[in-house]
Amino acid sequence: MKSCLIVDDSKVIRMVARRILSELNFEIEEAVDGQDALQACQKNMPDAVLLDWNMPVMNGLEFLIKLRQEKGGDRPIVVFCTTENDMEHIQKALMAGANEYIMKPFDREIIEAKFAQVGLL
């Protein structure tokens, strides 16, 4: 079973994403911001990260840059999932090492398609 860390400061979003990804057979961990996520990764590197951008304490982009510098931090497949839906943000995320990018609002079909594309399904 593959593991996925869901990082979002919205409890509702985490719940929706958890339901979809559990059904796709992922073992789920949750984090409420980038700092929280980084600690979770240091303890246990997940196979995948579903990552919000705008969060308090540490945002998604900062987390991603830090993650990629961690030992084993190049391994997780990181899929952004954010309301930031302009080309500039997408390019910034890809440059920082994101593997895929979902523009909110999302649904099961989009998550499934994106996760399949990066080889997680």
Partner: peptide, 10 residues
């Protein structure tokens, strides 16, 4: 977002 890899969108 359905089927198109982000790299190709960009």
């Amino acid at each position: 977002q359905r089927g198109l890899p982000i790299s190709l969108l960009v």
